[in-house]
Design a protein around this nucleic acid. Structure first.
Length: 1066
RNA sequence: GGGUCAGUAGCUCAGCUGGUUAGAGCACUCGGCUGAUAACCGAGAGGUCACACGUUCGAGUCGUGUCUGACCCA
């Protein structure tokens, strides 16, 4: 039986399509689950994308990282269910539909009809589903798409309702005000995303006003604001606890000749007072001001709670601008609202939903608040409250639709009291393995530590309705939270199984309240779409109404992975819901991906036109190379550049190297009928080089396995590339002759077996990362020869390292050999002696006795690599004049012991007179300690503390690096020259073989006519030439003839060669 | 404005708890090889480790500050 022949040229597209077809027809993904029902679980959660746009290259990245660990754990024998999912609700979907319909304002949606609008949303959200599914399959991301969860399905929504009811019963759901960026004209709040793009530079009023102290006459807090219209909503002033404040006395502004007293931040004194004279009466910390009462500026609204005093605003009070004292209007600022809640202050709603003052604010009733600014300022001036009024140039957010300035405006909405579980959120987070690690205590940990209640409500149309029904009679306080469709059916007394759980249909469900006062109606809100995705551990199974066992089996996740912007999105919503609901984490390991940039390191965006279409990559470079690039180019959390060119580098740098090795193996294995099912030679009986690559292989398995267990993606992949490089460019290059040799002996057999084992192992180690290439290699090398073997590499068991084969000494020795060979090449290079020309001797200096032993052990290898007749050690006796010495006091050993004296010792040893240094070096080499005197004191240095290094003396054909030296004997004897000539001719004949298209194992005969010196060399080496060229005969003739005749001139000699095929290889 | 992360060769990245003269790959130049060949091997050149100050016998590594970039939050 033979291996399927492999062309040295790889057609990546054909290869990948072939594997896809195989996976499809053999149902390989499905079979990763079959028969493993009792196996340990490995749980992956798919963070659901929204399929209302085409997938981009960043989705390929995320899916590549999602795919790699489940594949690994399948190979570890686990049962790995991977349910796909789609996120379908939310504002982005609505906005798409609004665009299609040409809708600009929210009320137009209601006019259009919610039912029809939502129907269009439902239709639009899965518009690109096919693109997503096609790309998912093409890139080899294994996830169950046919039973993917969809967040708009009734079963999904029911689960969410159940969760909300649990929260409701625990008293975690409540209604309160939240300050949002709000467009009064459109009557809608804007999402933060919409706001951040909409800042413009404007001039706003900038006024300083006095808040008179209640208990201290003629004294006032000086306060700065750019929104005078918020002053009627004032309930408090905030100071920084640690900020320094001053009480000053200055000339009264409105009463000539009198004085007034003002309080403001010390740091802002000169900025505020400018040229005005003042006297500082007292200094104090903000903490001393807390609780101080003042006289409210306005009393339009009757307020029955205590207010108008100084509170702590340490985390937002700045001394960069203003006065260091901030006015608090809870309805019109997020900080304000928070401070108000913390201090139980009232929220004064002085402005209506149109952005106009309410009637109670009688002076400016029904006036657009921004128009009221100058009027308010004028009144304050008349009342002698205004200290100064000017303009202030700054960035302010505007509505991106209608260009109206946004107001920060409190709206009543629903919250989840996550703050009640802050400690649990923080503690559970500590048990999660975050990659990169800093997210745990950084971005995510800090977010949790500063947790605020989750603002759940949304005043929109396409989303999960909040399942709360209230009696419409204000007298009644009847209110219920509904946890399922069955429960709702019970309330209304009929079967609602067919009800669509979206607006407007749920809104139509009403019933008479139990207290008989009115009708139970649903509150208008939907819930935050992040709650949808955060509920997926439960809702993907319809838990608890369905699949209870399945849920328990699949909770929590071992692994999730998304981009870093999900810290406050999905990562948070998953964590918050599971903490509140189950007091558990919902994921144990999480990779946060950095963002993807273009080839120049710029952000990819449609407007820049630098977006990479994933399909062009899939159709050219292919999935494996793209995946490999994602895994290896940067640590997962870093942002990374991406371009077709960078992926092509993966192909030439890694993919083709592996492919060439594979193709080499298949080519020769077929020639020799290598049978991988035959019993193998024990590793211990193979050659040194075989044992070395096997040691490297087992070290690799150990390393990569550890990396998979610790979610270290670069560790899973980069070492494989290093190994493949060793395999191709050292092991195989050094072993080629063993594959070419004609007789089948233990050496040849060991070479095949070793290379085979390495290739098959690499295929397995590579399988989770490069599922296509690894499958192709495995299916050719293993499946036809082993009836027991699974038909897919993805169904095989992960390798475990055989520690006994990791010969550390051998690994170190080979590292040294490579280094010395490299040095020898450098020496050749500087002498301009090509490798084809044999030299008589290479001599090396090394740093330790162990290294000297290694040199002796591998002298044949080194001799062959360097094409020299002999390799020896440059010992002290033979090296005189060729090398000199230098001394290197080892900092790691001496630094601590000598402390401040170390630099002087270092200087002395490094820069001492050559004769002295040589004497010291010999002393140390003999193992004797050294006594040196530095700054009048004598210091003993042991032989272990100072390294003796050999350095090349000038004028020799030598190379040196870090104490290693290679020296070449460059005298060419006649014999060496003749051998060089013979090699030259071998090379020409082999060129001709190739040009004549002979098979690798065809035998030939060669005739030649050469100049006398060359002819002499050739007859001397004719048997060598025959061996190297598979020639049966090599004869001098008058007139060379054959299939091909050519004449060459080199080194002053001329030869005419004729080659003729005499037998085909088998 | 606050926070997190990053800044090492032209490019992509290593560099462990501080310790020898900061490493690799790609690209470039030169040379070699030509029975893996749209490969391969060797060498060369290329770095004030973003900048400044500090701690230390010793800093790419630790601290403080600054600059630049990405992201998050306001």
């Amino acid at each position: 039986m033979k291996f399927k022949p492999i062309s040295p040229r790889v057609d990546i597209q054909a290869l990948e399509r072939e594997q896809l077809e195989f996976w499809r027809s053999a149902q390989v993904f499905k079979r990763t689950l079959e028969g493993r029902e009792g196996a340990p679980r490995y749980v992956f959660y798919e963070g659901p994308p929204t399929a209302n746009g085409k997938p981009g290259i960043h989705h390929v990245m995320a899916r590549a990282f999602k795919d790699i660990f489940p594949r690994y754990h399948v190979m570890q024998g686990k049962y790995v269910l991977r349910k796909g999912g789609w996120d379908t609700h939310g504002l982005p979907v609505e906005i798409e539909v609004e665009k299609e319909l040409g809708i600009e304002h929210k009320h137009q949606i209601e006019a259009y009809g919610i039912a029809e609008f939502n129907r269009r949303c439902r239709e639009s959200v899965l518009r690109y589903l096919e693109d997503w599914e096609a790309l998912t399959e093409r890139m080899g991301f294994w996830v169950s798409l046919e039973d993917a969860y969809i967040t708009f399905k009734n079963e999904y929504i029911e689960s969410i309702w159940w969760i909300l009811k649990q929260f409701w019963q625990k008293g975690l759901l409540y209604q309160d005000y939240k300050v949002v960026p709000y467009c009064a004209r459109c009557g809608t709040p804007l999402s933060s995303h919409e706001v951040s793009d909409a800042y413009e530079e404007v001039d706003d009023p900038s006024i300083y006003v006095r808040f008179a102290l209640r208990d201290e006459p003629n004294t006032a807090f000086l306060v700065w604001t750019t929104t005078p219209w918020t002053l009627p909503g004032n309930v408090a002033l905030a100071v920084g606890r640690e900020v320094d404040y001053v009480l000053i006395e200055t000339e009264a502004q409105y009463a000539k000749g009198q004085t007034e007293r003002l309080i403001l931040a010390k740091a802002l004194l000169s900025q505020v007072m400018r040229k005005q004279d003042y006297t500082v009466l007292r200094e104090m910390k903000g903490a001393e001001l807390l609780g101080a009462r003042y006289v409210p500026l306005f009393t339009f609204l009757p307020v029955n709670q205590d207010y108008a005093y100084v509170v702590d605003g340490s985390h937002f009070v700045s001394t960069e601008e203003g006065t260091g004292i901030v006015h608090i209007a809870p309805a019109f600022g997020a900080d304000d609202m928070e401070v108000a809640k913390a201090n139980h202050l009232p929220t004064l709603m002085t402005v209506n939903a149109e952005g106009k003052f309410i009637d109670a604010v009688s002076d400016w009733a029904d006036m657009w608040v921004k128009d009221a600014d100058p009027l308010i300022t004028r009144q304050l001036k008349e009342r002698h409250i205004l200290f100064r009024s000017e303009r202030y140039h700054h960035a302010y957010p505007f509505c991106w639709r209608c260009k109206t300035p946004l107001l920060y405006y409190a709206r009543e909405t629903w919250y989840i009291r996550t703050t009640a579980y802050r400690d649990e959120l923080v503690a559970l987070n500590q048990t999660i393995n975050w990659v990169p690690e800093h997210i745990r205590d950084g971005r995510f940990g800090m977010w949790l530590a500063n947790n605020r209640d989750w603002a759940l409500g949304r005043n929109r149309y396409w989303g999960t309705p909040l399942p709360i029904w209230k009696c419409d009679n204000p007298e009644s306080n009847e209110i219920v939270c509904v946890g399922s469709l069955a429960e709702l059916s019970e309330y209304v007394g009929r079967d609602l199984s067919d009800l669509d759980l979206h607006r407007p249909y749920v809104d139509e469900i009403t019933w008479a309240s139990k207290d008989g006062l009115g009708t139970m109606r649903r509150v208008p809100e939907l819930i935050d779409v992040w709650f949808d995705s955060g509920a997926m551990p439960y809702a993907q199974w319809g838990y608890p109404h369905r699949n209870q066992q399945l849920f328990e089996d699949q909770f929590p996740a071992d692994y999730i992975c998304e981009a870093i912007d999900q810290t406050r999105g999905w990562f948070y919503s998953l964590h918050a819901i599971s903490t509140l609901l189950m007091n558990s984490v919902s994921y144990k390991n999480v990779i946060c991906l950095g963002h993807i940039l273009d080839g120049e390191g710029k952000k990819m965006s449609k407007s820049r036109g630098n977006v990479v279409d994933p399909w062009t990559i899939m159709n050219r470079e292919g999935a494996d190379a793209a995946r490999w690039y994602m895994y290896t180019s940067a640590p997962p959390g870093d942002s990374r550049r991406f371009s077709a060119k960078l992926v092509q580098e993966v192909i030439s740098g890694f993919y083709l190297t592996l492919w060439n090795t594979y193709s080499f193996f298949v080519t020769y294995a077929n020639i020799d009928d290598f049978d991988p099912s035959a019993p193998r030679l024990p590793v211990a009986e193979r050659e040194e080089l075989d044992r070395w690559i096997i040691a490297e292989l087992n070290a690799l398995i150990k390393r990569v396995t550890h990396a998979y267990e610790t979610y270290d993606v670069t560790g899973c992949t980069r070492p494989i590339a290093d190994f493949v490089d060793d395999l191709s460019n050292w092991y195989l290059r050094r072993s080629r002759r063993r594959f070419w040799q004609s007789q089948w002996d233990a050496s040849k057999r060991a070479a095949y077996e070793t290379l085979y084992e390495c290739l098959v192992s690499v295929a397995k180690l590579l399988a989770p990362a490069m599922p296509f290439l690894s499958e192709a290699i495995y299916r050719n090398l293993v499946v036809p020869f082993d009836a027991e073997a699974p038909d897919s590499v993805h169904l095989t068991r992960w390798l475990s390292a055989d520690e006994s084969l990791i010969d550390e000494k051998l690994l170190a020795e080979m590292r040294l050999v490579k280094r010395l060979v490299s040095l020898g090449h450098a020496a050749r290079n500087s002498a301009e002696l090509r490798v084809r020309q044999p030299l008589s001797e290479a001599a090396f200096a090394v740093r330790t006795a162990d290294e000297a032993a290694a040199l002796r052990k591998f002298e044949a290898t080194i001799a062959e690599e360097l094409n020299v007749k002999a390799v020896r050690l440059l010992d002290e006796a033979s090296a005189s004049g060729m090398i000199s010495y230098s001394l290197n006091p080892l900092p790691q050993k001496l630094g601590k012991r000598l402390g401040a004296q170390f630099p002087a010792v270092q200087k002395l040893l490094r820069e001492g007179a050559p004769a002295q240094v040589t004497a010291w070096a010999k002393q140390l080499l003999a193992g004797e300690p050294l006594s040196v005197s530095v700054n009048g004191s004598t210091i003993e240095l042991s032989a272990e503390e100072v390294e003796v290094r050999r350095t090349a003396a000038e004028g020799f054909t030598v190379a040196e690096e870090n104490g290693y030296v290679a020296a070449l004997q460059t005298t060419l004897t006649d014999a060496l020259i003749k051998e060089g000539l013979a090699r030259e001719v071998v090379r020409r004949i082999n060129l001709m073989r190739r040009d004549a298209d002979y098979a690798l194992n065809d035998t030939i005969e060669v005739s030649y006519a050469a100049t006398p010196r060359l002819a002499e060399a050739l007859s001397l080496h004719s048997s060598y030439i025959c061996d190297e060229t598979l020639a049966e005969r090599f004869e001098a003739v008058e007139q060379p003839a054959g299939d091909k005749v050519e004449t060459f001139t080199f080194d002053g000699e001329t030869i005419t060669l004729g080659v003729k095929r005499i037998a085909k290889g088998q």
